[in-house]
Design a protein around this nucleic acid. Sequence first.
DNA 1: TAGTGGTCTAGACCACAGC
DNA 2: CTGTGGTCTAGACCACTAA
Lengths: 237, 237
Amino acid sequence: MTAAPSAHPLHQRIRSAIEGRIMSGALRPGDRIPYEHELMQQYGCSRMTVNKALSALADAGLIVRRRGAGSFVAQPRAHVATLIVPDVPAEIRARGMAYRLDLIDQVLLDAGDARVAAAMTVPAGSAVLAVTCRHNADGRPFAMEERLISIAEVPEAVDIDFAAVSPGSWLLAHVPWTEAEHRILARPAGDHAGALAVAADTACLVLERRTWRAKHTITWVRQTFPGAFALTARFDG
Amino acid sequence: MTAAPSAHPLHQRIRSAIEGRIMSGALRPGDRIPYEHELMQQYGCSRMTVNKALSALADAGLIVRRRGAGSFVAQPRAHVATLIVPDVPAEIRARGMAYRLDLIDQVLLDAGDARVAAAMTVPAGSAVLAVTCRHNADGRPFAMEERLISIAEVPEAVDIDFAAVSPGSWLLAHVPWTEAEHRILARPAGDHAGALAVAADTACLVLERRTWRAKHTITWVRQTFPGAFALTARFDG
DNA sequence: TAGTGGTCTAGACCACAGC
DNA sequence: CTGTGGTCTAGACCACTAA
């Protein structure tokens, strides 16, 4: 007795219909979305179904809902995009190239070390594992990785052979669900020029990530990509 | 008669409770989330309320729900972060610096032009506005911007004085709700070295964005930032 | 005051998974 | 088969907005 059957649930069709009118420009920022009551009648469904569709649009940032006033198309502010930061070995293999990891250095530092203090907040007196390695694709240098791992947070890391498994891949699998902050910048190869087999003034994409859980830094990493490597991010808001 | 009153609605408290157990590591990837039926009893609420909490966690990528099987903590795959791509004039002013825009070039190109064909898909025979400008902060070059705008999609753009308003700011306000794809890479200043007042081999952060609506490219832009400029992206998934 | 969205209930039917 | 999550209903009370 409801609308014709479809591959998609009703709340999703309502959402898509409104999203389409916004994306096509038929509804412009500030325009009023039909009241839940109107959409109920239009689609012949209950208010909860309409509410689910509009709430999803609000979560996505496409509309703004104001209790007592109504729902309106949101004003696009800055560009907001979802950035997928690839795991380097997975990214290399996804490109159909052979992956090889070279462990360059692996030492234990004190929490008071300058390198540690600049990047992390760890309990006084605890140790931090510093790993430097190089990712290779088809035998050629692809990226340098400098990493710090808090032993207080990840004690198992001391026993891992990071010549066999990339620190990033191991941590991704063993230290789930943390918060992180990324910085993306450009910098000359500098000290890494030799290891990356490029000139010292080669422009490199640098990705820095600090990962923490409940105020304690778990790991910090800086990856340096020479040449044509690019990150991609999709969808706007 | 339900739980003690709180500043947050019940579905949100349920969500936060489970999210906390995942983030703290108490629940690890693959672990089972309590059944909706169990959470109903535990919180003394209806199934819809529990469902709303778990659906939100699934949308956020923290858990995976499988009909007929149950809900489980998701396996973190790659790092997913939200990237805020700033509007350059707004970013400069937010840093407390004076903004000035220099319009360097503004020409109409044909859709068949090589520069256009490489970046956009526009209707044959239509025109594309090509704007090159420089963003300055406190009188010093901050970024170069090369932009293409499809006249077929945004005819008003022909009459705009892009010496007075940045193309990005104008488009953000006048072409609402589009889809976009970003590329981020590093590159030497090269041809822009003179305009940016840096050496030709200076490492620059380059942001390319293609914006479209319903298969038609609206605008393409490449921004080149010399030196220490960094993008930031937050939150993991 | 009338109408909005935010939240919640106590049911229901269904598709699907695992036994 | 039983039990899971996915969807949906027809109500309800509330906080808030706008007139």
